[in-house]
Amino acid sequence: MVKRAGRRLVVLATVPAAAFLALGISGPALADSGKAYQIDLAQLNNSGSRGTVMLNLKGNQLTVRIESEGMVPGQPSAQHLHGSTKGHDFHCPDASDDTDRDGVLSNTEATKDYGDINISLTTSGDTKATSGLAVDRMPVADRKGKVSYQRTITVGQDVVDHIKDLHVVQHGIDRNKNDKYDFEGAGKSELDPKLPQEATAPTNCGEVKGAAVGSIPVGGIETGGGSSQSQALPVAIMAGAALVVYAATAGGIAVARKRVAEVSGRSQTPGGAA
């Protein structure tokens, strides 16, 4: 009887590991999942745009995921990681930075607050700062004005060390509300006279909030196409479920240990049950 109870204890002891594996989580897997940072995008230029960004850093591989809305439908949205990797303090601008008081916060006016481009968040090709206006390689908003973006980029150690000092800015506004970028809305861009100001003016900005392991919230901003990246359970939730399973099985282990002790005690008592 003692041997049989002992075997039961061994089986129960293996359940927590099995539970973690069933959920697709293991100790090393959690340790190798990298660091994640959340950014909430808030409107600029009264654009009505908002969004959520997740930055996941694993080694020198940076995965950027963006879900935003309130963009100009059917138009490309230039987007970048701005800021400094040299310790300078930059932050998102506000309406007070419209120094010429023309009602439009231009990229030039805003740059003194959010800093130069560090990484261009293109859909393909290079991600250098010089690709900041590569609108042919920027994501295009759908007919509802939503942008869904994901890309993994190899970054330098300076970005790894200063990821919290960077922030995301998306560009493109529709000042005259005709669902397109044109010169009538706000004139020419100060960055490139061949482009409308509407195409380069910032539409939103967000700063890193801090470590927040998980995935982009799917309850607030709709993803439109139901992209697969929004279907995964947040790691924190999955880990929590695993801990619940662990707690339950740990209780079973305690009961088994108590049973072994009782049986062992009886077997050592004269006339005790076998």
Rank of each mutant, 00 (worst) to 15 (best):
I163G: 02
T130A: 13
S228Q: 14
M138I: 02
G224M: 04
Q43H: 09
R259K: 11
H171K: 07
T108I: 14
A31H: 13
A141Y: 06
G219S: 11
S227V: 12
K58F: 05
R8Y: 10
Q75W: 00
I163H: 06
A42V: 10
S124F: 09
C92H: 02
P73V: 05
L21R: 14
V64Y: 03
G83P: 08
K58E: 10
K58P: 01
P28T: 10
D182L: 10
D136M: 10
N56K: 14
I39H: 02
N56D: 07
G87T: 09
L30G: 09
G220P: 02
S68Q: 11
V208L: 04
C205F: 08
V255N: 11
D100Q: 07
A95Q: 15
D136V: 07
G210P: 09
C205Y: 04
Q229C: 02
G74Q: 06
G115F: 02
V160A: 04
H91T: 12
F90Q: 04
G187H: 09
Y181Q: 01
K86Q: 12
G24N: 11
Q38T: 13
R143K: 15
S33F: 12
F183W: 12
N46H: 09
Y114A: 01
M54L: 14
M71I: 01
P76I: 01
R65T: 12
V160H: 01
P196Q: 09
P93K: 07
P93D: 03
V208W: 02
L44A: 04
P73G: 03
K209A: 12
A254V: 14
A31Q: 14
I66K: 00
L21Q: 14
K180N: 09
K3G: 06
A248M: 15
V245E: 08
V53M: 03
E207M: 15
Y149P: 03
D102Y: 08
G34A: 06
G251W: 07
L166D: 02
L195G: 05
A199G: 03
K180P: 02
V11E: 11
G51P: 04
K146W: 03
P93G: 04
A212L: 13
S33K: 11
Q75N: 03
V255L: 15
V169D: 01
H167E: 03
G59H: 12
M54I: 10
E190Q: 12
A19G: 11
V235F: 02
P16D: 08
P93H: 04
A232V: 11
M238H: 00
Y246A: 12
D174V: 06
I66P: 00
A110F: 01
E69R: 10
L121T: 06
R8V: 14
T154L: 07
H171C: 03
K209R: 14
S120D: 06
P193N: 13
D32Y: 10
N60C: 01
L30C: 04
A29T: 09
A13S: 14
H82C: 06
G51T: 07
T111M: 15
T123F: 05
A212M: 11
Q61N: 15
L57C: 04
G145D: 07
G206C: 05
T130E: 14
R259Y: 04
L233Y: 04
A232F: 13
V213D: 10
I66F: 01
A232P: 00
L166M: 06
T249I: 05
G240N: 05
A199F: 05
I253Q: 08
S228A: 15
K188E: 13
